[in-house]
């Protein structure tokens, strides 16, 4: 478990609402409002996607929405920056392969 529950300056992590996210078909606990990337790390998930050509694993890199290394398919939409997108109860998150695949919405919009 990598959740920081006690901290000398930030204080204790209390009063946080729990939600459930579905990652590659399996349910995991997450904290309401936290970023997807944080929820995944808290559940010891470090690989978020595989690259298109060499199938190399990637995880978080910049943590502030700039580098796009942490992108995943979220609720059917690929290339979502997980480090700046908050979780929602019931959110469906999938490991992304290559450029991903649109499963929802119209990408010609």
């Amino acid at each position: 478990m990598t959740r920081i529950c006690e901290h000398p300056i930030l204080g204790d992590l209390t009063g946080v609402d729990q939600v459930t996210i579905i990652v590659d078909g399996k349910p995991y606990p997450a904290h309401e409002g936290e970023m997807i990337a944080a929820a995944l790390l808290a559940n010891d998930i470090k690989t978020f996607r595989y690259t298109a050509h060499q199938h190399r694993p990637r995880g978080i890199y910049c943590g502030i929405g700039r580098c796009t290394d942490c992108i995943m398919t979220v609720d059917g939409i690929p290339n979502i920056r997980t480090c700046i997108t908050p979780v929602r109860d019931g959110m469906v998150i999938e490991t992304q392969y290559g450029v991903g695949e649109w499963k929802r919405g119209d990408h010609h919009e």
Binding site: C5, L41, R56, G59, I60, C62, C83
Partner: peptide
Amino acid sequence: WTLPGVMGAGAAQTMINTNHVLPGK
């Protein structure tokens, strides 16, 4: 350098201080 677990120091700082999650041990 592209392996999961290599990250900016600022990214680690965001994870611990903003998100209350350790990026590693």
